[in-house]
Simulated assay, not measured.
Amino acid sequence: MATIREVAKTAGVSIATVSRVFNHPETVASETREHIDRIIAELGFSPNGTARSLALNKTSIVALIIPDILNPVFPEIAKGVEDVVHRRGYSLLLCNTESDAVKENEYLAAFLGRRVDGIIIAEGLLDRKGEEQVLGKGIALVHIGRKRNDTWASSVYTDFELGGFMATRHLIEQGFKRIGIIAGPEGQAEQLDKLRGYERALSEAGLPLDPDLVSPGDCEIEGGYLGAKKLLNAASPPRAIFACNDLMAIGAMDAIKTAGLRIPNDVALVGFDNIRMSALVDPKLTTISYPAHRIGTIAARLLFDMIETGTELSEREEIYIQPELKVRRSCGHSGRLQEMFN
């Protein structure tokens, strides 16, 4: 049974190029792709998971670790990963840590003992020492979340600080000067990045940072409701609120309406994530897009590149996904044309 290495050698290309024919065919020149396809047919190479397992001593199993299965962002990531995994003939193990480092480590220990071919961790807590243990076993590893400078592993990341900055700056551009924030849990680096972006936008606009306008949240609808209620009960309440995820923004909507206020006439609102529900609430929610399904797909393709070519520490890759502002009615924008396409 032919292996991917034999295909690469016969075709006169790298293993990575053969892998891209399966995982990222759009990145391979058509002439090269057709040449490799002919060699694959001649050698009878199959990317089927069972065949690969026998030929390469693989398990045809990959794992995805997420922090919160109830947050719509992470099932979307899981769907993107699973779409690629299924096409590759692999099976997917899905683990939910509830942002608990102990649970994350327990799952990783189980994977190291029972063996999986690759692991994707979304907004995880794994440090460099833990990464070395995973990669040292020859297991491919990809992070999803924020940019990490202290990592050996490959990653698909977005700039959460820039996203927080964009959300706050947009509210400033609408003329708002008292802007509150419903922040995420202090222990989550991605949420702290959004808070830093909020602070930077205020600073660059010459607006003061008022501690009374910073309300803690928990990334849940209930936390958003309580966070908005706290802001609205302040001595000088905000005229606009940035909620650090869409679930909290939806909770904030409920609190604002319960207080007898209108969105955006009395209080404007911006979220973060662009979950499907954000375009269904009334008014439709202005938000920062985090393309979760696409990110999951890219992370899985990157993981399979590593599985096929080996997991050398020196071959770490980073793929950056730019945050994007989705303007809808909740922020108080005057025009409706942009909303039609968001």
Score class of each variant (00 low, 15 high):
R115A: 14
N71I: 04
I119T: 03
R87Y: 02
K79C: 09
G113I: 11
A78I: 02
S19M: 08
K103S: 02
G44W: 02
A63D: 07
R88E: 15
I39E: 05
R20S: 06
L64I: 04
A110N: 15
P72F: 00
R87A: 08
I39K: 11
K79A: 12
E26K: 14
H35M: 14
D117S: 12
H24G: 07
A101C: 07
E106I: 02
S99P: 05
S30W: 00
C95G: 13
R114Q: 10
V81S: 03
L64N: 05
D37T: 14
F22M: 04
N23T: 15
G49Y: 04
I39C: 07
D37L: 13
T97N: 06
I36L: 13
S53C: 11
D117A: 10
E34I: 14
R88G: 10
V102G: 10
I36T: 06
Y90A: 11
E26R: 13
G113T: 12
V85W: 03
I40F: 03
N57L: 10
R114N: 15
D83W: 01
Y107V: 06
P25W: 06
A51F: 05
T97H: 07
F74I: 00
N96D: 08
V18R: 08
I65A: 04
R38T: 13
E98I: 12
P47E: 05
E104D: 00
I40M: 06
N71M: 01
F22S: 08
L94M: 14
L93R: 11
G49F: 00
I69V: 07
R38V: 11
R20T: 15
V116P: 00
L70E: 14
A101H: 13
T27L: 10
I119M: 06
G89A: 07
N48P: 02
V73A: 10
I40H: 01
V85K: 02
S60K: 09
V81D: 04
N71F: 07
P47N: 02
S19H: 01
N23L: 12
H24C: 15
S30N: 07
R38K: 14
R33C: 06
H24L: 14
A55F: 06
T32D: 10
K58F: 08
V116C: 01
L64F: 00
A110Y: 13
I120L: 08
